Amino acid sequence: MSEFLSTYGFLLVSMVQAGLLGLSLYFPLQAGQLSLATPGFYALGGYVAAILLTNPAFAGLRDSLGNGAFVLSWLAAALLCGVLGLIVGVPALRLRGIYLALATIAFIEILRVLSLNLTITGGAIGIFAIPQAFGFGDRWQYIWIFGPLLVLTLLFARQLERSRVGRAFRAIREDELAADAMGVNPTQYKVLAFVIGAVLAGIVGAMSAPFLNTWNAKQGTFDASIAVLAFVLIGGSRNIWGPVVGGALLTAVPEVLRFLADWRLVINGLVLVVASLYLPQGIVGALERLGKPRPPRRPTTLPPVEVKS
């Protein structure tokens, strides 16, 4: 078991990490919002943790808190991403569809350019030698922090779906005008969904900085946005397990097929194309349809009617 964890531990944690990032996009999609801002908040959360854990200005705080400094970085990232998500979400979520996607892409680019030009973020080089969380000696041990976060996120998402807020999200997704006419404030709930996704992405970023041991502007790019969107679309956007399955699958396939060299990227692309064409509701959606009994077929011809004399 120890040899297996040493070999595949990094991949297992990366699969859980990808599932969490997919879930951070899942919440805005529940309210019908195509937001691609997840990598931006993820990168911001990672920078918060990297700065708190390496900058000499916070050396006294780190010494006094010990391992509590890691927890503080999670809370600080969640708070900052939540506030920024609120500031960005209020004006941006007045847009819809592709216009909202373009606005969130612009947000990612702004953060990327800032991180490339600020001294505190290390510029283009980034921040190195980030201490390992809680003194972990092996990468697979990060499953002890990413795993519970995934479980808590799934429980939260399940309870949210069953609550009044979840019903409001679905109403807005299905028909925003009808939801508004029924007394649901679309802007309020869309901003709430956006902030929830931003907070989750920020926490994942703060946990990932020690896990990766380095952090730079490459963590939050447009390519990363497309990758996270693929997690949700391939897994399924109408079930909480969809982003988890999609993130785990698309993270594992290139690594499992690494022995094929460059051909593994071709196969990964084929998986995306086939899933998009033949699984429009995602893998989880297709499995749900298989598990449901088929409705009885209507008779093609009506039985003859007996006429009594």
Rank of each mutant, 00 (worst) to 15 (best):
S6F: 03
S6M: 03
Y8L: 02
G9Y: 07
F10Y: 11
L21M: 14
G22W: 06
Q30F: 04
L34F: 15
G45I: 10
A57E: 07
D63F: 13
G68A: 09
F70R: 09
L72V: 03
A78R: 11
G85R: 01
V90L: 15
L93F: 13
L102N: 04
A106T: 13
V113C: 01
L116A: 11
N117Y: 02
G123I: 00
I125G: 05
I127N: 04
I127Q: 03
A133S: 15
D138M: 12
R139K: 15
Q141F: 11
I145D: 09
P148I: 10
E161R: 15
R162L: 12
F169W: 09
E174S: 11
L177Y: 09
N185M: 02
T187A: 13
V191C: 06
F194D: 10
I196R: 11
L200C: 08
I203H: 10
M207H: 07
P210M: 03
N216Q: 00
I226P: 00
G235L: 08
S237T: 12
R238K: 14
G242W: 06
P243K: 04
G247R: 10
L265E: 12
G269A: 11
L270N: 10
L277C: 11
L287R: 01
E288R: 14
L290F: 15
T300E: 10
V305A: 13
